[in-house]
Design a protein around this nucleic acid. Structure first.
Lengths: 210, 210, 210, 210
DNA sequence: GATGAATGAGCGTTCATTCAT
DNA sequence: AATGAATGAACGCTCATTCAT
């Protein structure tokens, strides 16, 4: 019977929602399992039927939220991506990053929660449902594949871009230092283009860079 | 008589040493004040004569360790820096970063401890005793000042470089992914040079970039 | 099934019993929650499931013990009270006080515990279960209402009587000074009658006092 | 050398002053020896040269403050007492009580501190320097001796009066219940006169009471 | 499957007291 | 006589986890 399955899924969702609320409000360290269970309107013991401990639900949430952010970005940009010609692919990466930075700016608590806890290991394995279960890195990869330029060491390149954007945004958005988000964004875009140039390799007679 | 003062300083050092050991072994969250005091061979109450709480000793350690790293780097490079001509200044920055990356590679636990807890706010205010109490950022700044090129928004530029190096090293050194340190280092140097080009402004008749 | 409820009630009773024992033995200030829990044969944490802190259980006990004393007095005197004619009402008050003084004499530790901690605020709000949830003050009030005499400012009058009896008994019973209980009792009765005369007001043609 | 003696006395006074300030501000239980020593501008260890522990200084202060109150009352009333004829002696007792109630009303913190801790044992042994080292009870006694009436069981009578006044004032002044101080005072005076009548014995042909 | 009472180790912190200086 | 660093037991309290119902 799928009814039972549905009920279980709803309970798990309720726990995740409550945990996210509390984690973003005051951090995982200051949130207790009791609080999560109480907020999700169930008994403390029930929590342990769905998650091994606090750290499991935390990791689950990090993945989920990162997933949501990429999903949202991809949906909003899908129209653009579809019409994109090979020469504009680098612009596509920039749009994607801008979209994500904007999401972070609007939800700084989410940024705080994710950034403090996200590692490349989690990130590079995250699957996005909307997109044939591609992982986050594959999204970048997929975009780049359609470029007229070719890139060497694509994973390293994406890794460097993601880490740069993530860590600078964290400080700028949450500590309002050393500059404003808009200023950072402008420079980041420029630097990201630079990084892409750095990793681009010559592929045809038209002749290319670095 | 300075005997008492000496003894107090030694006690404080002992606490800092023990705390560093335990924090790097298992993180501040999993370390208790009791453990620190026990490891430093004194009573729990004595801890509170020297530090307000666990967070104060943690912050003190972050500053201290970052301080040590920059001090070491600066000492090792001082000979080079002194002979440096204006055109080689960008190389100086690269040497500094390489030195720091090497220190991190040799002491990954220190990297874990510092990176997880260091914010730009702490970093940009850290004073280095050896160097006329300059702060860490001033060290970069001082090097750049001697360059034949001029840079706009120096703080933002340094911020981006530091964050990029710090966050990528964290993942690469601690999670061994997605590439080896040496490979990352090679690319980082290239990217950092790119960032410096990005922020450089034309200053003389020879005409320059961006 | 009331089984769980019963068990909880028993645990709470056990805590109250242990706390009373320890509080009367050495006072609330010198009793720790650990001790109470240990004496009641349960874990320290369990205490906190039933009481917010030491002060809550203390206040609960003061109310409980005062309640018991009044309940006992009222039971023992109920036969007398029922047959009482209006002219004997003042004798009823005296019997009540004598009964309470006797209870204190037999349980000096209870007197020590209650008197040191009972304020008029607590006292005048205490509800006695046996007696239609009347509070302690209402018991006096109810008795006085049946008197052929009328009293002005009944609450103040009762307050003065209660405080006088309570504070003099405290010293006499616990410090055996300056006189013996029996001697005090004799005089107290006389003084209490005097206070009632002081607050009595003329109500009919027979003409009365103050 | 009296110089050393003076210095010691001053230190002791400083400790007493600091302790009184802190005890009345937040109660003895919430005041630590460290705080008292720090407030008195000396080292923690020095405290123990003057007082055995916190409880000794507390008891010393209770005696001191009660002493001061009686001293003040006696000074203010000495003119009246000297002119008093035997028939007015009972009025003298009333003036004394009124004066003390007024002092309490003006310094409720002192009342809180003293009442919670004063026992008849301490009270009846307190010596007042101004008055040939008479104790507090002797002051009452001395006044009563000059009365034209004679009293039996003077100590018990004084004890009852003191306890009644002390305990009712405590509640009324500190908890503002159940009535205002002025109202209580009016009734207390009446009750105290009643108690004096109760203990008065016939002494001459005019024939008197009880 | 769901509950929530019970646990008890462990937390950070306080503080009376000692004692070498 | 005076100091204040050091002690360490004890405090109130939290909370992840277990388990009988």
């Amino acid at each position: 019977m799928g009814k039972v399955e549905d009920k279980k899924k709803m309970k798990k969702e309720a726990l995740l929602d409550s945990a996210l609320k509390l984690f973003t409000e005051k951090g995982p360290a200051e949130t207790s399992v009791s609080e999560i269970a109480k907020d999700a309107q169930m008994a403390k013991g029930t929590f342990y039927l769905y998650f091994k401990d606090k750290y499991e639900i935390r990791d689950c949430l990090i993945a989920r939220q990162t997933h949501f952010i990429f999903q949202k970005a991809h949906r909003e940009l899908s129209a653009i991506f579809e019409k994109m010609v090979p020469d504009q692919v680098e612009d596509g990466i920039v749009y994607l990053l801008e979209n994500i930075i904007d999401q972070f700016t609007e939800n700084p608590e989410i940024l705080r929660f994710i950034s403090k806890n996200l590692s490349w290991g989690i990130f590079s394995n995250l699957r996005i449902q909307d997109l044939d279960n591609q992982n986050c890195m594959d999204i970048f990869d997929g975009i780049l594949e359609r470029s007229s330029r070719k890139y060497r060491q694509r994973e390293l390149m994406i890794f460097m871009i993601v880490e740069l954007v993530n860590s600078t945004c964290y400080n700028v958005i949450l500590n309002h230092a050393p500059v404003a988000v808009q200023e950072l964004k402008k420079e980041l875009i420029c630097t990201v283009r630079g990084i892409m140039d750095q990793f681009a390799v010559a592929i045809d007679d038209t002749g290319v860079n670095v």
